[in-house]
Write a protein that binds this DNA or RNA. Structure first.
Length: 287
DNA sequence: TACTGGCCTAGGTA
DNA sequence: ATACCTAGGCCAG
C-alpha cells in the first residue's frame, strides 16, 4: 500500500508505549491484532504487509489522521516542535478497547519492559496459540478467559496487586456482555466516566484507554514523566504555589491530575493526545 | 472534598 | 552478586 506522503514512523509508533505486544524481527514487525497476525514493514513510500486487507491496516495505524494538520495544530511552542521534528511520523494506533483496558490496568506502577512481560505471560497462559512462519503467537485472552482465571493464575503472570483488578473488570465485562466499542460513540467525558467504573481504572488509565482505543484524541494522560515535562517546560501556565507543590511531592492527587490534564487539553486543543505522545516519547528517549 | 499509606513485582542501576 | 530504587496509579480510610 502506498502511503502517498502520509508520514508514518513504524519504529516509533510501535515502541512509544501505546502498544506492548509488537516485536521486530529483522526488518519486519510482527503483531497480533484481534485474531490476526500482522507482519508489516515500510520500504520507502510503501507499507508492506501480509494476511490482511488495506482497510484494516490503514484503520489500525490511523492513516486517516491528517498528521500535517495535527502537527500545525499542536505545535504551539518550540519545545513540542522539537519533539514533533525528532519523532515525526509517530501515530496513535487504534487498538481494541478490551486489550487496551487490561493493558493499562496492568501498566500502573510498572516500566514499559515489565508491562510487556506481564502481557506476554498473560497471553501465553490464557490466549489462543497461533503459529505463523514457524513462530508461536498468542491472541490476547478473551474477557471470558480472564474472568474464569483464578487470582493465583493471574498472580503467576507477575500481575501482583493488579490481579484482583484484572479479574474483577474481566468478570464485570464478561457477565454483563459489556460493549466497550459503544464508548466510541460517547463524548470524552462520558467515556472516561464509564471507564472509571471498572476496578483498577482511575483517571490516568481511563485517559489512556480513551486516547488509544476510543478515538478521544483530546484526552491528555498525565503520569510522573508528563508531570516532569510540565514542571520543566510549561510551569509558567500554573501558579507558583501549584508548581511548588508538584515539585515537592512525588505523588499527586486526583485534583492535581485534572489540573495538569486540563491544561494539556486546553493548551494543545483537540489533538492534545498527540501532543502528549510526542512529548512523552521525546522525554523518554532523552534518558 | 482532599490527603495518606499501602500495595505486588520485576527491571534497571549502583 | 546483592541490595536498593523505581516504575505510564488506584483504592480504602
Amino acid at each position: 500500500m502506498n502511503l502517498y506522503g502520509r508520514p508514518l514512523n513504524l519504529d516509533v509508533t510501535l515502541c512509544c508505549g501505546q502498544v506492548f505486544r509488537w516485536e521486530k524481527r529483522g526488518e519486519w514487525w510482527f503483531g497480533v491484532v484481534g485474531d490476526r497476525i500482522l507482519k508489516v514493514r515500510r520500504v520507502d513510500e510503501v507499507l508492506e504487509f501480509q494476511n490482511v486487507e488495506d482497510d484494516f491496516v490503514s484503520h489500525y495505524f490511523s492513516l486517516d489522521h491528517d498528521l500535517q494538520r495535527i502537527g500545525s495544530e499542536i505545535g504551539k511552542d518550540g519545545y513540542i516542535r522539537e519533539a514533533l521534528r525528532e519523532f515525526w511520523g509517530l501515530r496513535l494506533i487504534r487498538q481494541e478497547p478490551w486489550e487496551c483496558l487490561i493493558s493499562f490496568i496492568c501498566a500502573t506502577y510498572k516500566s514499559v519492559s515489565a508491562i510487556r512481560q506481564m502481557l506476554l505471560k498473560l497471553s501465553i497462559r490464557f490466549g489462543e496459540k497461533k503459529i505463523f512462519e514457524g513462530h508461536d503467537f498468542y491472541a490476547f485472552p478473551t474477557p471470558e478467559k480472564l474472568a474464569r482465571a483464578t487470582l493465583k493464575d493471574l498472580e503467576s503472570c507477575g500481575l501482583g496487586y493488579r490481579s484482583k483488578y484484572v479479574h474483577a473488570t474481566s468478570k464485570s465485562i464478561h457477565s454483563d456482555e459489556y460493549d466497550l466499542e459503544a464508548l466510541r460513540k460517547m463524548s470524552y467525558e462520558q467515556a472516561k466516566k464509564a471507564l472509571c467504573q471498572f476496578p483498577g481504572v482511575g483517571p490516568k488509565v481511563a485517559d489512556c484507554v480513551s486516547l488509544f482505543s476510543l478515538d478521544k484524541l483530546d484526552a491528555f494522560p498525565v503520569d510522573v514523566r508528563v508531570k516532569r515535562i510540565v514542571l520543566r517546560h510549561y510551569s509558567e501556565h500554573f501558579t507558583g504555589v501549584f508548581v511548588q507543590k508538584l515539585a515537592s511531592e512525588q505523588l499527586f492527587s486526583n485534583s492535581d491530575y485534572e489540573k495538569i490534564s486540563g491544561f494539556g487539553r486546553t493548551y494543545f486543543g483537540k489533538y492534545a493526545g498527540y501532543a502528549q505522545e510526542y512529548l512523552y516519547h521525546y522525554e523518554r528517549m532523552k534518558n
